[in-house]
């Protein structure tokens, strides 16, 4: 897996607001077909990193390559081509408030593809089914949805073009445990069947255990650890120990990881 050229490669990334540096020379690779779980304390800059990779936050230094191309040196046309190969689900959903759920899902289709309205309606229905929303959600406006439904609708929109690379910012926060498990299943299925690469910011230990191939941890503006779950569990970095061996973690840690009492 590490042999192939990484889909996302970040080198020496520095991002700050005013005098305050949030990311201080961050390095990160995401391999094709991998589900990367990105963890870090609140306010450490996980969303800032995601936005920087997406080109939404200006960076002060560093190189970001996506699909092997430097996003700074890209021509506008290839940037557009890139944008249809990735799907993004923002932390707050970022659904267009004046469009219905169905129109939200169809927005990228309309922008990039020439499809008949009928097919777009049907495909929107399919996406809704995939993310577990009832068909009658199609004609609701975002303000009429519950928090969990907003997350699902946002995922449906992120999947509208069947992207190769998916960015998810805290996708399962706000979902009930059953919904979160369904979500994990869906990501696992899509990864298996479509060869999807997923960059997922998450605090959901269940997701980390069940669907992430590798985990990267952010602290003090750098990736302090990057590797499979076992490596994280074995690490003696204080933050990682607190994260993976804390009170919350204990309940779901796999039995063989439980230290003998």
């Amino acid at each position: 897996m590490t042999e192939a050229e990484p889909i996302i490669s970040v080198r020496g990334l520095e991002v700050g607001f005013g005098a305050r540096k949030i990311l201080k020379g961050l390095d990160l690779d995401v391999a094709p077909g991998e589900v990367l779980g990105f963890v870090g304390g609140s306010g450490q800059g996980k969303s800032v990193l995601t936005r920087a990779i997406l080109g939404l936050n200006a960076k002060q230094a560093g190189v970001i390559e996506v699909f092997g191309e430097d996003i700074d040196k890209m021509a506008p046309a290839s940037h557009r081509a890139l944008e249809r190969r990735w799907g993004v689900m923002f932390q707050g959903g970022a659904l267009f408030s004046s469009l219905t759920v169905k129109q939200n899902i169809q927005a990228p289709m309309r922008e990039y593809l020439k499809l008949s309205q009928k097919l777009m309606d049907e495909l929107a229905g399919l996406k809704l089914k995939l993310v577990g929303l009832p068909p009658d959600a199609a004609d609701k406006f975002p303000s009429q949805l519950s928090g969990g439904m907003v997350k699902r609708a946002a995922l449906a929109r992120a999947l509208a073009l069947d992207p190769e690379l998916l960015f998810l910012d805290e996708p399962t926060s706000g979902l009930d445990p059953i919904g979160a498990a369904d979500f994990d299943d869906l990501i696992a299925t899509l990864r298996k069947t479509l060869g999807l690469t997923v960059f997922m910011v998450t605090h959901d230990l269940d997701s980390l255990y069940s669907i992430c191939d590798t985990i990267a941890a952010l602290a003090d503006g750098k990736v302090i650890a990057h590797g499979p779950l076992e490596a994280m569990l074995a690490s003696d970095h204080p933050w990682l120990r607190a994260y993976f061996h804390g009170k919350r973690a204990r309940a779901i840690r796999s039995p063989n990881e439980m230290a003998p009492a």
Binding site: L130, P135, L194
Partner: peptide, 16 residues
């Protein structure tokens, strides 16, 4: 197998 799963996941259901 992957395609079979996909075909099952994305099975067509006539929309009401």
């Amino acid at each position: 197998p992957e395609k079979a799963i996909l075909l099952k996941e994305a099975a067509y259901a006539p929309a009401a």
